[in-house]
Write a protein that binds this DNA or RNA. Structure first.
Lengths: 335, 335
DNA sequence: TTGTAAGCGTTATCAG
DNA sequence: CTGATAACGCTTACAA
């Protein structure tokens, strides 16, 4: 049913290489015949086969992306950045989901390689350090770029937010407001970005001469539920904190919910600062003060790196994007 | 650099068709040689080429999906459902973004067809009725299934939520709570699902003998901003509503924000009901009463339909999934 | 400017 | 059980 260049060549009694040239706007074909060919192709409903083309060109114009969770608003925005950038370069993206499981991630990468994607972007890689090392050690393999590398060791190519700086500005903001008893609700332990943000938090406190209380550092997860639970623990403390810096915005959302359910109000009783600046954060009640990550830019940058890698151009191993504080209503001066 | 079956055939001095069989676990090859071949393939780092295979099998085991906006939490969850179902059938998905622009959508579909995807799922199609008609009229083309068809006319295959029913139960809930002056904040006019929800709203009001006031039906959009603006208009009315049914959860979020900024509280002064039940809705302040759509199931169902279509099995043109009311704190009895 | 032919890495159809 | 060999639909030297 599908019409191929041979069909249209036959219909015009010419060789199919000429058809191929005409369709690719090669100058090596008379303008007139090109016209005719293109017209006939259109009327015959010809659709070039990207798979046949890929087989010979050894390029699929496709980027694989592996994400731990599609429904995370932060990742979704990063993916949007990737998709837009990819499209602008004529690339499509194959989206796969690792559900945060290293085995799935590796399986996904394998599958993408079988599909001969030109490059792979890992959004928050979850595989172990060793397996990542293996991924990058293979020579001449599909280029891989990791967004928000979750491990301490720097491996391969990555683009990430300056989490340390983010942790610093968030904490400094709270200090500037007069808070002294400031808590940190972390992400999952496995996430290195949470550790970095926490380091920024600790450093900033220390620099201000505020004693760092380990009881004020509580683990959450990537969901509101984690923030909710953590906040309950914090409120049960003999001396609860007056301000809280959260791993991310949804953690902050959960924390605020817990505060309300405990009869506390934000920011009157307790100030909250998030991280990410997801699109809904400005509409939370109260609108959330947060540290914005350059989500779209991260996606763009990652695509650029992959493409540069593919083109054999020199690429910096690590691209760090600054974050910036966005002050809204969830934080106020300590009274 | 890539090793092919020919390479491993050469290395073992056998024909490459045997290698192919062994790798595909064909019974038509001696168990022993199969063992050897598979082992050698592994040590040589052989990775089958899906593109070569696709060229001959005429199957890519790939589904194309076109979505209007990736960062919409509702769509994201639908996509997750699609991805999971696709994976379970051994399919990968190519994700493209139409940004709500019909031309982009058509271009995306074209691109997916060039890539020879086995089927296409449109998440909230935005193309015009005529162009959709054309899409479906072509015989033996790539099967297409539309999730949340945004047009009135029923075209092709689709899976959607029973929006009318959803509008009914939301409105009935508010009526049951004693509200009589109930508003509807709609989505974009172009979205048929919003119209259907509104019909459910109107019908339910009429059935209860409540006069339908057109001043209480205001257009929003797909964002909190739309809900915010609409709410401001409603609050400026001589007799503002005591309850509001919103097109979706983010609209509701924007509406609540507007209520707060006007000094009103939810649900004491005004009850709010959303639609979708996005994952964050339970953590809004107050937790949002909403009509849940079976998001993952929609994705699953769409994949199943595409695959059935592909297999030539009989498929119902329209699959309608029920919605259900989830009562949380944003709605309370009229006082 | 056009045609011929090789080849991309598989699967699949024949024979042997 | 195994081996030739012809596709699949295209690009791309190389010839004409």
């Amino acid at each position: 049913v599908t019409v191929s260049i041979k069909d249209i060549a036959r219909a015009m009694n010419i060789s199919y290489s000429t058809v191929s040239r005409a369709l690719n706007n090669s100058p090596r074909v008379k303008a007139e015949t090109r016209q005719q060919i293109q017209q006939l192709a259109a009327t015959m409903g010809y659709l070039p086969s990207a798979v046949a083309r890929s087989l010979v060109t050894r390029r699929t114009n496709t980027l694989g992306i592996v994400v731990t969770k599609i429904t995370d608003l932060f990742f979704a925005e990063v993916i949007q950045g990737i998709e837009e950038a990819a499209l602008s370069y004529g690339y499509s993206i194959i989206l796969t989901n690792s559900a945060g499981q290293p085995e799935y991630e590796l399986a996904a990468i394998q599958s993408l390689r079988e599909r001969r994607v030109d490059g792979i972007i890992l959004v928050a890689a979850c595989a172990s350090t060793e397996s990542k090392q293996r991924l990058f050690s293979q020579p001449l393999e599909t280029p891989i770029v990791i967004i928000n590398n979750v491990h301490q060791e720097h491996i391969g190519f990555s683009v990430e937010t300056d989490n340390l700086q983010g942790g610093c500005i968030a904490t400094q903001h709270l200090l500037d407001l007069g808070h002294r008893r400031i808590a940190y609700i972390a992400g999952p332990v496995s996430e290195w970005d949470s550790v970095e943000r926490q380091q920024g938090y600790v450093q900033t406190l220390q620099a201000a001469g505020v004693v760092v209380d380990s009881a004020l550092m509580i683990r959450g997860d990537n969901l509101p539920a984690g923030g909710f639970q953590a906040m309950h623990q914090l409120l049960a403390l003999p001396t609860p904190p007056s301000a809280i810096f959260c791993y991310n915005d949804v953690t902050a959302l959960g924390a605020m919910r817990a505060a309300y359910s405990a009869g506390k109000s934000v920011p009157q009783d307790i100030s909250i600062v998030g991280f990410d600046d997801i699109s809904l954060a400005a509409y939370f009640e109260p609108p959330l003060t947060t540290v914005a990550q350059a989500k779209l830019e991260m996606g763009e940058k990652a695509v650029q790196m992959v493409l540069d890698l593919l083109a054999g151009q020199p690429v910096m191993e690590k691209s760090v994007l600054p974050s910036r504080l966005i002050v809204r209503a969830s934080s106020q001066a300590f009274r």
